[in-house]
Every structure is written in structure tokens, then in C-alpha cells.
Write a protein that binds this DNA or RNA. Structure first.
Lengths: 211, 211, 211, 211
DNA sequence: CGATAAACGAGACGGTACGTCGCGTCTTCTG
DNA sequence: CAGAAGACGCGACGTACCGTCTCGTTTATCG
């Protein structure tokens, strides 16, 4: 977000970016820090997470972190935000022809162990939402919000093509998959393929048929 | 847990309970502290909650809190634990004859503003679960666990009396109501009657019919 | 001091003390507590001394101590006061015919190991004097004050009988013996007979002769 | 003690002093803190002294104090230690030709109100010596120890040049001036010029003449 | 190619909450 | 009622983390 300011700069026209001597900030490190943030967050939660720990995990100094994100809250929000942007991208991809295939494709990324870390971290964001009022909405948008949106779009698409009748309460239905995955994460259980299938074939699709 | 010490006491023979001089701890205060804990927790979240604030809200000294719960984590866990015990009691009550009535009765307690506080606090428990590994399971049992169990029992009862066919994945289905209520709480939205009806009539009952 | 109020009561004359039902306070314990106070004070100093420790050393409960002395300061002051009263009594006794004999007799009580405890405790009183302005004078009177007075009397007596010429600064001279004994105590050195003789024959008597 | 680390450093070879990154500790503040410590100590005594008070008096945060001295005891010991180092330096200076002049010069620094603070603080150290066994010796060396040593040197010098005959007990005699000044401080009396003259002309010099 | 200005590592610094401990008051029980 | 045992209000202690700051070192771009 902050880094995007310089993105649109048109070379020499902008005086701020044109003549900026000095060592350039190594933006490679941004991703490393965010990754470390998620790792520590997933393991120790928001409370147990320390800027020192994140910096050590990333192999750099605390100041290097603070130079990019002014507070712990900003860091966590940004980490989870970027995380969910990845989800959103993934969500737009699946188009298997059937809703069942689409939903399975949407959940699959969380099947592997690597992605487990991300869900664990995302769940921790709720702590921030409670403590910091100004970030409650951001947390909502950044956390499961995009995921819920993806669910809604996929379901709507299936309804539009006549695969299922329109549900009675589409908004609530769209929250089911993300929230039940969160539930798994809260219990520190992996999101297995069996769970995904049970969720889709045992809840979502029956609900659409029975509506 | 604490109360179990006196469980076996039956007469003057028991040395633990027989002659214990000294001022008795005023267990009335326990409830006051726990109530204050939930109130502060709901308003400021786990991060913003302070033992000093809780003590001030309860109108007593910090040491009085620490004499009962050694750490902030223990205090929060106990507060939410007792909270969910209340939920469990409520869960066993409803028996309206139809699943729809039972589920509505189960959710209703969270309709009034007073109970909103409790949900907000309960949600904050996830922060603890992340920070303190040894308490992850306790958090699970104390938080939404009992609620999930209540849902499962109500659904099973309806199936047993032939009201609905057995669902394909009853365990997952039982998590739907609690988790979607949590979702509302996370978004700081009230759990209105409209939401409850939409959830039951738009997701749970259709899923059972369509199973 | 407080305890002395009831001392002169003559049974039926005083209405307040006449009809006083209930268990009588065991004044034997007063001495035990004071002794324990001095012992703990001597070993751990004023800072390290705890009412709990004193009570435990005396084999009774904290409340029993507080019923007699309202604060830690009062307890310590009283302990050291009574201690120095004993010194004052001793001081009036010696009358050996020579100043040298009198002074040696005055110092002798501190020669044995038992009395070492008392000096150590007395020294600790200075801590109180610093912290509590209202007790500074009491500390002076109770600590080395009586001892200084005893020195002055003995010297004056020797001058009166013509043993030595009147000193130039009798007040200052009278402080020498007590303060140098305190110095020994501060260094945790015992007040041996050699030290006493060196002090009297090497400082006091020469100063009187040389004045 | 701390400063000795750099003592052996002579060139770029020393790894300890060569390249130590990070913000340098502002050692100017050390003196400010120590001065504040002495001021608070002199006014309120060891018991009444608080790290918060010291920090506030020094105009900095509590953590800044704790970063330099881990405990209250260490802080006080160091404050008094450095204080007496200053005394030692002063003690080596006076050389007026006569013992009387030397001793007066030694005492004079404590005549002004500013230095009164230091004596008051120094006296408070005895409280530490009682409470903390491991520091008893340090307290001895740091408190009046150097002062006693200075007295002994001055007296010995006078004897060496034939001004007075050798005293019978030079060690004890050397303690007289410091301890009687401490006595004055304990009584919260100023060390006036009259007192100094009375002490020297009424005790020390007569004792030397009469020996 | 050297000057310069920023990034970076390391850590001091001001705050603030934590959890512990001692003081002095109080309450409750037993003898 | 005295005495034991211990809860309670208060406040200092020493620790840890946050976010800011100030060093010395390194690295890139400009003159």
C-alpha cells in the first residue's frame, strides 16, 4: 500500500523519485518480513508475536521492520491483507463447470501444509479487530471477507446457469465455507480433503437443493 | 476444579475442610471479577484488556484478582469457560417439538444486548488459544465447543423422531450455527432475529431436507 | 509505652479495666516478639526484616504482633528503646574508683556474643531515622543517645574528683566511645577487650591528659 | 570497574572496543542518576527512596535506570561508592604544614550545604549493609572507609615529621573524625566549623599530645 | 571516482503492563 | 475476647515489549 506510491512514478518527471540519492530500500525484504510475520503469528498468536521475533526470524534488525510498517498492527494487517489478496486471485480462477468442482478448487489451496500457516495467522487477526477499533473494518475486509465474497460469486454463478435454485439466504450461505474452515483452524486441525468434501456435499449442496 | 477438593468431605473427619482458620475468601467477588473481565474484554479485546482495568471495573485491588487467577490468561480462560457453562445449561432446555423451534430457542439468548457482551468476549478467546499452546484445548472446550455440542444433540433428536432424514455430515453441520454467529460477532453485527431465521430456514433446514 | 496504661490499674477502681471480660493478653509474648525483632533486625537489617519473619521467629501470628505495635517502625523503635534502657541501667552502676575502670565496665557488656546481636540491631535504626522524619529524634534518644549520656556522666565524675582536668569539648568527647563501637559493628567486627582498651587508653584518656 | 574493559585497548586489534554498533549509552546520564540517587537518599532515606522518584528527579524513565543498575541495592552502592572516591581525592590534597590545618582542610568540604546531602546519603548505606550480606564489605570500603584511611595518612605524616609523638592506637584514632561526623549527620545537625574545631582541638590533638 | 544520502544493524530510551511481595487493616474461626 | 490464619487495598519492585531515537557501517547514485 505504502510502497505503491512510487509505483506510478514516471521516471524523471517526478521530483521526489527522480533525484533520490542514497541506498535504495531492498524491497525483497518486504516479502521476507511478511512471511516471517505470518509464521510467528501462526505459531504464537498475536499476543505471543514480537517484532523482535519477527525480525530475528527474517534475519534482520527491528528497525528494518519499523521502517516499513509503523506499528505491529499495521504489520499484521498488511501481512494478512496480502495473504487474502492471494486468496482472491485464486478465487477468480476456478471454473470447472460445476459448483462442486469450483468450491473444491477454491478450498484445495489450503490442503497443503504450507498454507496451513496462513490460515492460522489469519485467524489471529481477530485479536487485532477487538483491540483496535479503527482496524475492525480492515480486518473484516482483509481476513475472511474476500473469501466470503468468492463463495458468493461461485454460488451465484451456479444459480445463474440454472444448476441450483436461488437460495433463501445467499449471504449467510456464502459465509459457511470460510467460517467452518476457520473453525478447523481454531481447533488446530488440518483442512483435509475429506473435510472439504463433507462440507460441500453435506452442507452447501444439500442446502441449495433443499432450499 | 477448585471446588472438587471439598467434594469428598462429609463430616468433621476431613482435615482439609474441617478446621481452616483465617478470613474466608469472598467468593461473591469471583463472579464480579469474571463479569468485569468479560465486559472489558468485550469492549477492548484481549490486547486492550488490563488487569488494572478489570480490577477498577470490579471495584477492588489488583492483588485480589491475582490471588484468584495467577495470570491474565487464566483469568480470561476462566471467564469464558464459565460463560459457556451457562450456554450449555441453556442448550439442554429447549424442547419445542420441532427442530426449528429448538434451534430458535437456542439462539434467542444471544438476541438481547446484554448477551452480546458475552459473545464479544468469547471471540477474544482465540487470541489466548494462539498465544498459549497449553490452553488451546481448554479454549476449544470452553468457547464454542459446548455450543456445537448442543446443536448436534438438537439435530440428532429431530432425526431420531423422524422429522428429517439423517444428514450426510452431522458433525460439520452442527458447527454451522455457532460459527456463523461468531462471524456476526467478528463483524460487530448484532445477532438479530432476522439473522437467526435466515440461518435456520436458509441453511440448516434446507441442508437437512436436501441431504 | 502503650502497655504501660494498664500497669497501674488497681482492680476495681478503674471502671475501664475492672470489668474486662475475655482472654487476657499474654504480656510474656511482648518480650519474645521484641527479642525476635532484634534477632531478625541484626541478621537481615531493617530492609530485610519482615513482620512475617519476626512473627515466625517468635512462633506466633502476624496479627499478634500488630495488636501490640501498630507499625513496623514502632516495633523497631520499641525494640531498640528497651535495649538501650538496659544500657542506661548498666551505665549508672559502674563506680570502680577510676575513670578507666568505669569506662571498661561500661563497654564490657558488649563483649559477649549475645550482646552483639543488640548492637547490630541498634545500628539498623539509622535506616528508620532517614525514612521517617518524625522518628529521627526518637531514634537518637533510643539508640546511642543514652550511651553518650552515660559516657558524659562518667567523664564528668572523674573531672569532679580531680582525676583529670576538664576537657575542652566534653560533649564531643562523650560521643567517641559509642560511635567507635558503632563503627566496629558496622564492619561486623566484634567489640573485643583489646579494642576497648585501645579505645580508652589510646584515645579517651590521652585526650583528657593532653587537653 | 566497568571502565576497566577498555583499559587494555590500545589499537584496532581489540575486539571488545573495536566495532560495537548500536546507539551509544549516554554515560552523562550515569552521573545525573547517581546524583539524583544521593539527593533522594539523603532526603527520604533508603526505605523512602524509590526508583521512580530517582528517575523522575533525574528527568528520565525508570527503564533507563534499570538498564545501568539491575537493582536498587546496586544503584545505592554505586552512588555511595563514587561519592567516597571523590572524598579520597580530596583527602590527598591537603598539605598545610600542620596536622591541625590538614584535618580542618579535610573536613571543610562537608561544611557547605551542598555536601551535607552527600553525608546524609552515605549514612543511609548502613541499611544496605545489613540487608544484603554480599555487599557488607563493599559498603565498608565505599562508605567511611576511605575517609578513615585519609585520617590515618594525615596523622602518620604529622608523626613522621615530628609534629607529634606516635599514638598508642593509631587505627582507632583515625576513625574518630569520620565517625563523629557521621554522628552529627545522624542527628541531622550540620557539620559546622565550630564542631570541626572542637573535634580537632578537643579530641584529636589532645589525644596525640597526651599519648 | 569521490561525495553524499539513505538503508541497515545494533541497541539506548521513554512508556506502560505484567506478576510478585511486603505493609497494615479486616474478617472469620477456635480456644 | 486473644490468638491463628489469611483475605484485602495499596504501592514498589524488577521484567518485557512497544515504538522512537541515535549511533556507526554499508551501498547506491550523483557531481
Amino acid at each position: 500500500m505504502r510502497a505503491l506510491q512510487a509505483a506510478g512514478a514516471k521516471a524523471e518527471s517526478s521530483p521526489t523519485t527522480a533525484a533520490r540519492p542514497g541506498r535504495k530500500r531492498d524491497h525483497t525484504r518486504d516479502a521476507v518480513i511478511l512471511e516471517s510475520t505470518l509464521a510467528v503469528l501462526a505459531e504464537l498468536g498475536y499476543e505471543g508475536m514480537t517484532i523482535d521475533l519477527v525480525a530475528a526470524h527474517a534475519g534482520m534488525a527491528r528497525a528494518t521492520v519499523y521502517r516499513r510498517w509503523p506499528t505491529k498492527v499495521d504489520l499484521v494487517v498488511d501481512a494478512v491483507t496480502r495473504l487474502s489478496q492471494g486468496d482472491a486471485d485464486v478465487a477468480q480462477l476456478p471454473d470447472t463447470g460445476t459448483l462442486r468442482g469450483d468450491l473444491l478448487a477454491m478450498i484445495r489451496p489450503f490442503d497443503d501444509a504450507q498454507q496451513q500457516v496462513r490460515i492460522q495467522a489469519m485467524v489471529s487477526l481477530v485479536a487485532v479487530a477487538r483491540s483496535d477499533h479503527r482496524l475492525a473494518e480492515i480486518a473484516k475486509d482483509a481476513g475472511i471477507g474476500p473469501w466470503i465474497h468468492a463463495s458468493r460469486v461461485l454460488i451465484q454463478r451456479a444459480v445463474d446457469r440454472g444448476e441450483y435454485p436461488p437460495p433463501a439466504d445467499p449471504d449467510t450461505l456464502a459465509e459457511v465455507i470460510p467460517m467452518l474452515c476457520v473453525s478447523r483452524a481454531l481447533q488446530r486441525l488440518p483442512i483435509t480433503r475429506e473435510f472439504s468434501i463433507g462440507l460441500i456435499d453435506g452442507v452447501i449442496l444439500p442446502a441449495l437443493r433443499g432450499g
